[in-house]
Write a protein that binds this DNA or RNA. Structure first.
Length: 429
DNA sequence: TCTGGGGTCCTAGGACCC
DNA sequence: TCTGGGGTCCTAGGACCC
């Protein structure tokens, strides 16, 4: 009997993705430190290499770092997810030309399988990298290993040591032990702050030490997931390439407001807007939802103010993706949980009980087929218009007519690739 | 004034049933 | 009053990821 050929995983990861997206359309930003801020321009969620070198940490509150930004000429951007999402698609489409065995893991990462190809994995990786750079302007790093977890490790090495040219392979690497020794325990994929702290109490400080622990000991303390991490570090694949896109279990839209809010009608408009956004995403997945939750809370950082938070669920009469149904349910829940006199700082809408619309069993209280077809057509038209002309071009009255005043976005870049009115202009002087 | 948003999975323990 | 084992389902909490 011949052994099945070993799998070879590659992890492709965009370097400082959001910062790189901003830079791709603005050559003046080359070499300049860049930070991208969260919603409301609250905290730093992405940094260019230059910004990291200035010691700006991930999650840094923007207001505390203003002086540093000014002093070093840091280019500051509000997050522009329309741009990042579209750039992500371009990167992924480019990678997919090289192999069909690909799992899009996040907006800026993909796992690929590089066995079953003619050329050496490292050579393929270098070609993928160069092509993505050329076609999209986004720099990526690629790590290669016999398991996903080791591919992650290799990716770290590729990022940290530029002398490898952005691609590094750990398969059959003679010095694997030394490399694993250099990986801090919290930097292992699947081991976060809590487990890291716990492991350090046992004297486990790096990936190599962890990989030599007893399987059952790890399982008992870190669940089956921790055991998988252990085995994967030893080169035993436990996590397969997931190529089918699963139906989401939940869809959330929530925001922290730029200021606080006491007015129930305004809150109702905002929550209606969130319900509409979840509906759009639900329909984009071809799904319907059975339950809708609304939650709201006061400012958790202002302990001198009265605190209140609450959430409640409404079961929809029949699973639906129609925006009016979702808004109606959300407003009903708001009536239940709203308490006057509090300054609300954050609210959100969550859908769950999600299933594919096609082929599902119909519910007793389902609208008639004619009614369903008609409302489906209305929703589709709305989604098409908003896709073409920008989000919220067309919306329901319940969402309010005011501007999106609740969100602060003082440093927003143009939607270069997804809006005709914001295309970049090239001047040849 | 100022600290994001969106997800997944696992386990322990309680309620309930036979 | 004490006495059992085994199974399922649900929820809360805790961990992780980007």
């Amino acid at each position: 009997m011949t052994k099945p050929p070993a799998t070879i995983f590659a992890l492709l990861d965009c370097n400082n993705f959001y910062a790189s997206c901003e830079r791709a359309f603005n050559p003046k930003l080359r070499k300049r430190p860049i930070v991208v801020l969260s919603n409301n321009d609250g905290c730093v969620i992405a940094r260019s290499a230059e910004a990291k070198a200035l010691g700006i940490p991930m999650g840094a509150p923007a207001f505390k770092f203003q002086p540093l930004f000014r002093k070093h000429g840091v280019a500051v951007f509000s997050s522009n997810f329309a741009l990042y999402g579209d750039m992500s698609r371009r990167v992924m489409d480019t990678a997919a030309r090289f192999t069909p065995d690909m799992e899009i893991y996040s907006i800026d990462e993909a796992f690929l399988r590089l066995d079953r190809m003619h050329d050496r994995p490292l050579d393929v990786a270098r070609r993928i990298r160069a092509t993505i750079q050329q076609w999209t302007g986004i720099p990526v790093s690629i790590g290669i290993g016999p398991t996903k977890t080791l591919a992650k490790v290799a990716n770290r090495v590729a990022k940290k040591h530029p002398e490898h040219g952005g691609a590094f392979s750990l398969e059959d690497h003679p010095d694997r032990d030394r490399i694993l020794t250099d990986i801090e325990i919290e930097d292992v994929w699947g081991i976060g702050r809590q487990y890291g702290k716990k492991l350090r109490e046992f004297g486990i400080r790096n990936a190599l030490q962890f990989s030599r622990l007893d399987k059952d000991w790890v399982r008992k303390r870190m669940t089956v997931n921790g055991m998988h991490t252990l085995l994967e570090l030893q080169g035993v694949p436990c996590l397969p390439l997931e190529q089918t896109v699963a139906t989401p279990k939940s869809i959330v839209c929530s925001r922290t407001f730029a200021g606080s809010l006491t007015d129930k009608d305004k809150l109702a408009e905002i929550i209606s807007g969130y319900a509409a956004r979840t509906g759009e995403r639900l329909r984009a997945q071809g799904c319907v939802a059975g339950h809708l939750q609304v939650f709201m809370l006061t400012d958790r950082f202002r302990l001198d103010r009265p605190q209140y938070s609450n959430a409640a669920v409404s079961s929809l009469v029949a699973p639906t993706s129609r925006t009016p149904d979702l808004i109606r349910a959300a407003r009903k829940v708001l009536d239940q949980i709203f308490k006057p006199g509090y300054e609300y700082r954050k609210a959100g809408v969550m859908l769950f009980g999600i299933e594919k619309e096609q082929g599902r069993r119909l519910h007793l209280f389902e609208p008639s087929p004619e009614e369903r077809a008609r409302s489906k057509a209305v929703m589709e038209t709305m989604d098409r218009i908003n896709a073409k002309w920008g989000a919220m071009t067309m919306r329901l009255g319940a969402e309010g007519t005011g501007k999106r005043w609740v969100m602060r976005q003082a440093h927003l870049s143009p939607r270069y690739t997804t809006n005709w009115r914001e295309l970049p202009v090239v001047r040849l002087d």
